[in-house]
Design a protein around this nucleic acid. Sequence first.
DNA 1: CTGAAAGCGCTTACAG
DNA 2: CTGAAAGCGCTTACAG
Lengths: 351, 351
Amino acid sequence: VNLEEIARLSGVSRSTVSRVINNRPGVNPKTRERVFEVINRLDYHPSAAARRLAGGHANILGLVIPMGVPRLFTDPFFPLLIQGVSQACSAHDHSVMLWVAEPEYERRTIRQVLQNKMIDGVIVASAILDDPLLEAMIEGSLPFVLVGRHPAAPQVNYVDVDNFTSSREIVTYLLRLGYRRVATITGPQNMIAGLDRLEGYRSALHQWGIPVNPDLILSGDFMEEGGYTAMQRLIPRHPQAIFCASDAMAVGALRALREASLRVPEDVAVTSFDDLPFSAHAEPPLTTVRQPIQRMGATAVETLMDIIAHPDSPPRSVILPTEIIIRASCCPAGQTGKEAMPGTEKITTNV
Amino acid sequence: VNLEEIARLSGVSRSTVSRVINNRPGVNPKTRERVFEVINRLDYHPSAAARRLAGGHANILGLVIPMGVPRLFTDPFFPLLIQGVSQACSAHDHSVMLWVAEPEYERRTIRQVLQNKMIDGVIVASAILDDPLLEAMIEGSLPFVLVGRHPAAPQVNYVDVDNFTSSREIVTYLLRLGYRRVATITGPQNMIAGLDRLEGYRSALHQWGIPVNPDLILSGDFMEEGGYTAMQRLIPRHPQAIFCASDAMAVGALRALREASLRVPEDVAVTSFDDLPFSAHAEPPLTTVRQPIQRMGATAVETLMDIIAHPDSPPRSVILPTEIIIRASCCPAGQTGKEAMPGTEKITTNV
DNA sequence: CTGAAAGCGCTTACAG
DNA sequence: CTGAAAGCGCTTACAG
């Protein structure tokens, strides 16, 4: 079943069928209706290959996850993102081409993506500063959207949450509970989210006139293992409360605290960032910043489709809201957790 | 840069360039070399769209993950599989198109996949019995490979591990340690892996002349939550040892045991299946069957490429080896765990 | 071993 | 509002 056949059966030319399919103006409504009827009856779908070759859109978006092996399966961030992207594409009758860019093959992947004449645009889920892939994308002419803000290039379209403000607010929450010796386990400082979350921590302390103590800032890697080892080094420094820059690190931190026989939240209060599905089942359940990962994926798709449709409009940036999810890993300073804490509760922020 | 230009610069016709690109025989070696030289110099890549349209291969494989929301981010099985597929495709200069098939959109996804005239073949990661997608694939003519064996249709190509034998062996391992009251928490019984792992459990007991006690068989869902609730129901029945059909369920079971103040392995020995990355960090680390998930993805790609290249050869099935990874969640019956258990150790099976 | 030509299924000016 | 025609970049018989 091809366009030719639809034209024949509707009694019009191929040009007209093409106009109908692509929703172009200037077609008699009755003609349009007749053509649609035939299309639906035959369950006709245009060939992406032919479309693309003829200079049109293939309705295929690329998704690039430039990530070394570890984090891809340490936590469900990327699976959720992939799902959001995939769902939104499906809903808009687009397909998605996926690249998982291992660092050692990065150059090759860049070529594969940019020289791939099949895709209409790309979603890049990289938050690594100075990612060569990102630089290549900026140089190139393929429309793309970044998941995560870009610190330097203002022309880059992106979808993100406000990592800075969200982090400042959850640290402020700890300060309000009465803690003063608040530590942080940071994300990698070559990722924008890692930087912003640390800045949010610093900003909250500044606002409350509390000096930032370098001994209470430990660097992590967003993963369980990194949270675990950072916490081990932190324990001798006797923090009252901690802000981990990711849930996965918080789980590692909880493990280190348990091994040291410290109770959470009675001895140390713990907060983090992400609200991944496992965070509600941690021991204790985590108080954390929820970011809408799936929605970020879906929003990236919609933003990219809009960019493709309107290539000359100014750069787009979308900031999605977060909320603070309050669970049992915190309690007011000086109290025991059990008596003081409510069930899960939400504080919506950055709306 | 297109084929025309390569032809011009090499002083041959487009036909010849096409033959060179597609590694067809009947080209003078010197001509071939000359053409390759120009291709490499210009970094030329043929247009997948044009290729496909002209009746050739686009070098694009599809990957379908027909799964409801939950398991996709509960455990890293699918991320690992995706990574294996993506890597192997990249290595063979293929691209991958991804569909995450939500059950409610399944019909739509089936159409999108089968009517997609872009892909050369599909990898289907469904182990659900009577999956309509699978039935549609069997009806259709698009080459495909299943990840997970198909119980009924012998013409279906697949890549899998031997779930039955591997499960029998890890349960046998528990029996050798001296346990007799061995329970199991099963996977969903509408998935072939769930069925096979339960059969393996039964078979091990039979071999040892131990009657199968229905009270010691609880059904789970492969996920943490299901393992947790199944274990809660199991505790009053006083099992000495348990075989969980997935690591994620084992983690849930450990949580239930901890809440009931039962020690692992002293009070209850725990084994499972998968050896996902988090299993080495569980409390205690899990004795489990390791299946090579990434390699299954890569093998599926290679098998599919082989099927596409040789469409008329008989059905292919590939069984990859597993190994039993011994960690601290088991000890000989009647001993305390600490004194008896070695570090991590492997028993390779099904090689 | 090599080339000229038709054709894959679309889109896009161009003409009316 | 509609159609005839060219062309996108390949592959594949067919002819030599």
